[in-house]
Design a protein around this nucleic acid. Sequence first.
DNA 1: ATTTTTTACTTTTGTTTTGCAAGCAAAAAT
DNA 2: ATTTTTGCTTGCAAAACAAAAGTAAAAAAT
Lengths: 152, 152
Amino acid sequence: MENGFRSQCPITSALDIVGDKWSLVIIKQMLFEEKATFTDFTESREAIATNILASRLKMLEGFGILRKVKPPRNRKTNIYLLTEKGLSLTPVLMELTFWSKDQIQEFHPNLNLDKQLDHARKNKAQVCRRIVENYKERMAQWISVVDAKKPV
Amino acid sequence: MENGFRSQCPITSALDIVGDKWSLVIIKQMLFEEKATFTDFTESREAIATNILASRLKMLEGFGILRKVKPPRNRKTNIYLLTEKGLSLTPVLMELTFWSKDQIQEFHPNLNLDKQLDHARKNKAQVCRRIVENYKERMAQWISVVDAKKPV
DNA sequence: ATTTTTTACTTTTGTTTTGCAAGCAAAAAT
DNA sequence: ATTTTTGCTTGCAAAACAAAAGTAAAAAAT
């Protein structure tokens, strides 16, 4: 293979990128929990170590799943934004949620489940679009005019 | 948390179970590549080490994602079968496939992509059902009459 | 303008998970 | 009865992950 991927299988190759303990958790925190800066992530109760966080953010940026922007009037803080490539993992995250609700409550009775999960399950495509739109609206403030002209 | 799960988040909790390097690959090999015995897995080109394979199979069995059966007339070979809990990960695997096709071909141009992926994307629920049915038909031979009476 | 705090990391030092190679006992095939 | 196959386990090296501390630059407070 000799390009870092285990095989030619699309599933295995996807997992070669996001199939570790933290990548999808980071992406989920961005998409659903308003996390956008380095400290946002460190303040989550799902405590990821800062060294791993730094390396995962770098790796995900390298694959174009997220990108860093500087907010205007602050040269220190970085805002991490999901790209289209990252946002297109939304269906994967949704299906993991459905599976969790159906199958792992027996091991973990205290799962925090959205009350509207049944609705989401019946309207997957629509709900997925709304999640992505909501994200983009929330994050629009961080996208400078000059960025907005480029394809994300 | 104190039950082995990182948080109450359904996504994170699903990843606490199948979010490692090999679990979903093993499940994929069972569902799509006819792997059913220990040596079947070891003969795959996605070479998983036997110690890890053994520990993952044990772990997945513990979570009820797969189960072991003895084929009639052979007391040595074990057949590993996906349960309903395992089969219900099919949508996750499908979405990973779609993401792969759309987003990682640029890093991995030689992906083996099914010619019918576009059809699958437009008929997700139907294709998912067919995949599961096909799996069950293929594996029916290993399910003894006595097992078949119990819920899978 | 100087000090303090915040932010975004890096470094160090373990520990755990993964990977490789070999070994092994029971069952099946010859 | 001997050889091969099957389903693992064991021992050790390498890589990933984790906890804690440290650091340098920017921002905020004084």
